[in-house]
């Protein structure tokens, strides 16, 4: 299960950034709201760091009204492209898995 989660989690993060930048803690809170995706919060930082390094997302700091400035994540063009590609493959992939999993649906 953890391998599967690891595989799709990065696209979930990219999808969360589709409509605009979000800061780290906010991303973690949203993900924690989906129990399937929720692992311990801290384990998501290596993923965010990888998205940054691989150029799928970049970050900027913005002042916050309360407390220290926040690091926001936003999609890069490359990230948007990766997300679109995944979103294109996903329905076919999901349906194929369902065909194997649902009894009698194989034919």
């Amino acid at each position: 299960m953890s391998q599967l989660r690891k595989g799709v989690l990065e696209y979930c993060v990219l999808a969360l950034l589709r409509d605009g930048p979000r800061y780290g803690v906010e991303l973690l809170d949203v993900l924690a709201g989906s129990p399937v995706m929720a692992t311990s919060q801290g384990t998501l930082y290596p993923l965010l760091s990888r998205l940054r390094r691989s150029g799928l997302a970049d970050t900027f700091l913005m002042e916050s009204a309360s407390g220290p400035s926040r690091r926001y994540y936003q999609l890069t063009d490359q990230g948007r492209q990766a997300l679109e590609e995944f979103a294109g493959h996903w329905p076919g992939f999901r349906d194929a898995v369902d065909r194997f999993l649902v009894p009698g649906a194989e034919s």
């Binding site: 692992t39 311990s40 919060q41 801290g42 290596p46 993923l47 760091s49 990888r50």
Partner: peptide
């Protein structure tokens, strides 16, 4: 506690 144990976090980073 919400962040996770140091071992868990390090393991995630190493697996990555």
């Amino acid at each position: 506690d919400r962040l996770g144990t140091p071992r868990e976090i390090a393991a995630a980073a190493i697996a990555d």
